[in-house]
Design a binder for these strands. Structure first.
Lengths: 295, 295
DNA sequence: CTCAAGGTGTACCAAAAATTTCATATAAGA
DNA sequence: TCTTATATGAAATTTTTGGTACACCTTGAG
């Protein structure tokens, strides 16, 4: 009972944790006079008043150090440092949740390349989310969560890396996952294996690559389901795709930004992992175990 | 007299920005290696990392207590307690100004998976930008723009894809670019070629991979310059890295998000492309031409 | 008015933290 | 290559802090 409060160092429960302040308010009338003084000080400058030394805290509360000690002990802490740790923990959790904070104004001037680039990318992400129908997203999640399906990832010269990134995650979450190189010579023969049970997840943005298009068209002809991650102008693959998830890609650069594609990818990974958690968890544990037994 | 503590730290200027964090970012390149580590730790968990004891702070930063002391002294504080007082002061001012902001009423529940995931990622990007010293970023840009250097990209099982992504862009912008596979068997022999003229750009986030670390250590020993893209907890590679660019990676998922790493990567690509434009442009045109003449 | 029974503060001690010292390692300069 | 300057950490030292024992109040019941 006593120290049940402190275990919560990182529990990150969805509901706001019962702040210490709240508890103090509740128990206020059961406190001794000195304790009340301490409580009032703490509540009036919560939680900063408690971050000083005991001596400081006691003085400001108008009591003696031992009384301050007794106060925190009574709250269930094992000592003053323990009490402070808790306060800091609360503070950190509170400050981190609305981390949008983002310093105001001024820095834009000195804003180096990185900052302005980031703002553009953030704009892309927002626009990307806006333009994707939740239903479409959910449908893709359901598709990729179907254990009977075989999932193939592929992409172009730049986006191929994203396809790899996706594959390396899905490979752990579920079985029947692989990566197909874009060059026709490398997939021509595998195409015979592709059928209705297969899903192709293709990444393709402008300067659309003919070989990736060819791959998807061939697969579609065999009855495979195509999921396309592309830009707002839509890769020609869209013609044969069942699901299309477009991402905004324009950035203050000579190159396009793939951040939106990565966002969708990671969101899909997260959603599918959650969806398949019962089977994914053991798989992930098994992978961990295999990695750790280093010969 | 009693309450003097609360007000002492704030220089009640109407504009509050001279945050310590900002100053640290500015002076970053004038720091010694140990000081940089301390600075990175502090910035990545600002300001909470500094609220512990010196010993704790030093350990987490991977340096000794005296070095931590020297760091805060260098920042102009008379000692560690003084430094902590300042941090608390900033924190209090910051938390009190937009009072009652953080409405605990969160709509995250009703928001679709993609949207809430995007918000978290955007938060990560902002935090990432905040915590990278412009000077550090610029230094890396200069390094990667040096045509006499040979650039090698590498990464772990997930981040390897990002390294590939980086490589596929830089390869077009400049010469002397390649990708090194993480497994020791694949790079052992190449290591003889690595020397002072080489730059290793390593991607490594938690569940840090031993083989990537080994690669970097070996390369560093040969005199190569290491650039590290990692998370705020810093991969062990940081010990041998000349430049460290940390990205926030925590997302509402069972997996970490690499969006911050991608952001940095793309910003680097953009900056280097611009920097080398005179030589990059002809290269890019040549690549286009070669691609188009499809036999 | 006396006498418990908590409540509180003073004085002291032990523990922990901050800081200084100094030898060693590392990088810069000649 | 040899020096010199600088950076760094282990260990010793000093200072501060948290914690405790105990005596002194205060209060309320008999």
């Amino acid at each position: 009972m006593k120290h049940s409060i402190m275990k919560k160092t990182k529990a990150v429960s969805p509901v706001d944790p019962p702040s210490l302040a709240e508890r103090i308010r509740l128990e206020m009338d059961s406190f001794t006079p000195s304790e009340k003084r301490a409580a009032h000080l703490l509540l009036s400058h919560y939680p900063f008043a408690g971050l000083d030394t005991v001596a400081e805290f006691a003085t400001r509360a108008g009591i003696s150090a031992p009384s301050a000690l007794r106060f925190v002990t009574r709250l269930g802490f094992s000592g003053f440092p323990d009490f402070q740790r808790h306060l800091r923990g609360e503070l950190e959790a509170q400050l981190l949740s609305p981390l949008a904070k983002a310093g105001p104004a001024d820095k834009s001037q000195s804003a180096p390349a990185l900052a302005s680039f980031a703002e553009a990318v953030i704009g892309n992400l927002r626009a990307t989310v806006e333009n994707i129908a939740p239903a479409e997203f959910d449908a893709v999640v359901a598709l990729l969560s179907d254990p009977r399906r075989h999932i193939h990832f592929t992409g172009g010269r730049f986006t191929g890396a994203l396809a790899r990134y996706a594959e390396s995650h899905f490979r752990i979450v579920r079985s029947q996952v692989d990566f197909i190189e874009g060059q026709p010579a490398l997939w021509r023969d595998r195409m015979i294996e592709i059928g209705k049970k297969d899903v192709i997840v293709a990444f393709d943005i402008r300067r659309y690559q003919e070989d990736v298009t060819a791959l998807c068209e061939a697969a579609a002809k065999q009855g495979a389901t195509i999921v396309l991650l592309t830009d707002p102008w839509l890769s020609p693959i869209a013609r044969v795709a069942r699901h299309v998830l477009p991402a905004h890609i324009v950035a203050p650069s000579n190159w396009d930004s793939s951040a939106g594609l990565l966002l969708i990818t990671e969101a899909l990974v997260a959603a599918v992992t959650k969806h398949l958690w019962d089977t994914a968890k053991p798989r992930m544990e098994a992978v961990e175990r295999l990695r750790n037994e280093k010969p």
